[in-house]
Design a protein around this nucleic acid. Structure first.
Lengths: 343, 343
DNA sequence: ATGAAAGCGCTAACAG
DNA sequence: CTGTTAGCGCTTTCAT
């Protein structure tokens, strides 16, 4: 069906070796022959079969991305940025959404191995490193993003959630807040544990005692849980003047909860979210949040990968652990506390 | 490095043909031999090289998705849904984000041809069908999503934006609105033209004369343009009671513009967006919008594709044009008009 | 019930 | 300056 080297060689009246060399510029070919070959390629609409270069035990120029989901703005932007960067370096990305399902994740790794991916970027849900170890032993470079796996080491790019949260709480304290509510994740995760430590440390730094009553867990990973969590929080402690939520969606829910109670944001309560999702820029009011630095993560990831792939000597270099400190984005949902509230 | 059939054959003490047949169950192999081969596969952590099946002129089980961007919620969800559906049918997706750049798009198609993709799903930015025609002539199935290319026919899955907008405006009229502002796209596109026709038709159906002054173009494809567009609109015609925006982000901007002017939504003005992006569920108020049916689009696309790929006889069947009517999602930003406004 | 060998499309020695 | 050929890992006749 599609044209092959043979077809091109025949039409140009040369050997297949010459065609190959013209395409790859891997040895001198006379101008005249080069032209004939290129004309034939054009004429036949010949597209060299990249699978072959994979077969000849060289690179497939395919990289796998194993990720829970690309349909939330944060991971979507991350995946897109990685794809673009790799594409401009000549690599293609096979994206596998795992939906946090361990079986799908396993199948995704298997497929990438069968497709002979040159490398794998993973945000694994499986906290066990068995499969990852196996892959590593096969000599396939792995970059772990935003995850740390016990007993398994690999190039890692992650976010310093302790620092991010610390900065956010510091900022609230700087505005004059001392009674700061905290909406926590339903179930602890390394990620959310770091956040909590940052919160406690910021309070401690300023001599504010930690009060467990100011902390509630959201029932779920969604908007509605934010609404009910903030209501519970305000009932527990009516003296609160600010709320930190571990996740932007939850923070937006918290804003709604506050508005539903008849209060205003930020006049009556300040709210800070986490992740810097794009829609925090289009909320009313715009949400102050800690920005998940997708671009820097993507950049660090791709640079690490390309280095491992391009320079064979770098394959054995020590694994890197890149930690990125997220930035606080101050928008409209935070202000200094007032003495009296509206309703 | 990685194990091959040869290694497995040697360890199991059989020929490579037998190994192949055990893996693919393509001819009878005795239980005893089967066990030995499977043990060897396990032992060596052998992953069959899928590139070969592509080489042998069979399928690569790779499908290309050429899309402007996956980092907006709509396309992200579409891409994710397609990826998951194809994955569960044994196919992998190579996603190429074009950023609406024609050169990148061209390069994406070329890469997919070199990678010998079994099929291509495209949301092309290039309104010329030259490349697509070339691909089609090579016998590679194409599905066009949400786009129609003049002088080029292929399987198509698209949204009936005329109907979607018609329904939205109808709904506003049903609530009692007659002065309905319209925020249009900066530059016309088949998509936005359909929307405008739906708007005009709905007015016409109810004997409401069309007034060009009720229509403005947003300066850009973003939030800020919505803010300024709505202000212009209200200045043009203070009697408006409802606003339709061609795009959710713009609609959210319009809501902000209205709030900034001191009015309320929906009490003083109703607002309807378009695309049903997930964050319309977490805005304040929640935005009434016309839902871009990603799931149904993805489903139709994958079914079309799988049929073409699995059944050779279906390759020559007539091209399908699947038109999906989007649904209006009524939320909190719309209500019946009131006689007096707030400020 | 299994093995031998051709060949997919291409690259990279080796030859001339 | 260009051609011949082995071989990458596997599937698939053809043999036995």
């Amino acid at each position: 069906m599609a044209a092959t080297v043979k077809d091109v060689a025949k039409l140009a009246g040369v050997s297949i070796a010459t065609v190959s060399h013209v395409i790859n510029k891997t040895r001198y070919v006379s101008d005249e022959t080069t032209t004939r070959v290129n004309d034939a390629i054009e004429e036949l609409k010949y597209y060299p079969n990249m699978l072959v270069s994979g077969l000849l035990n060289k690179k497939t120029y395919t990289i796998g991305l194993v990720i829970p989901s690309i349909s939330n703005e944060t991971f979507g932007l991350l995946a897109e940025t990685i794809q673009k960067m790799l594409f401009s370096s000549g690599y293609n990305l096979i994206i596998c959404n795992t939906s946090y399902d361990l079986e799908i994740e396993e199948e995704a790794f298997n497929t990438l191995l069968r497709k002979k991916a040159d490398a794998i970027i993973a945000i694994p849900s499986n906290r066990e490193g068995k499969k990852l170890k196996e892959i590593k032993e096969m000599g396939i470079p792995i970059v772990l993003v935003d995850r740390v796996i016990p007993d398994f080491s690999a190039d890692t790019v992650r976010v310093d959630n302790f620092q991010g949260t610390h900065e956010a709480i510091n900022y609230l304290i700087g505005l004059g807040h001392t009674a700061i509510g905290y909406i926590d994740r339903k179930v602890d995760q390394s990620h959310s544990l770091e956040q909590k430590l940052g919160y406690k440390k910021a309070l401690e730094d300023h001599g504010i005692p930690f009060d467990a009553a100011n902390m509630v867990r959201a029932d779920d990973y969604d908007y509605e849980s934010g609404v009910s969590a903030v209501k519970k929080l305000l009932q527990n402690n009516p003296k609160l003047t600010a709320i930190f939520a571990y996740y932007d969606i939850t923070a937006l829910g918290a804003m709604r909860g506050i508005l539903e109670l008849g209060y205003r944001v930020p006049e009556d309560f300040s709210v800070i979210g986490y992740d810097g999702m794009p829609f925090t820029k289009v909320s009313w009011p715009r949400l102050t949040t800690v920005f998940f630095p997708e671009y820097r993560i993507a950049k660090a990831t791709c640079e690490l990968l390309i280095k491992r792939l391009d320079r064979d000597d770098s394959r054995n270099e020590k694994e890197k652990d890149i930690v990125i400190v997220p930035k606080l984005i101050v928008q409209e949902s935070t202000a200094a506390p007032r003495s009296s509230k509206l309703p």
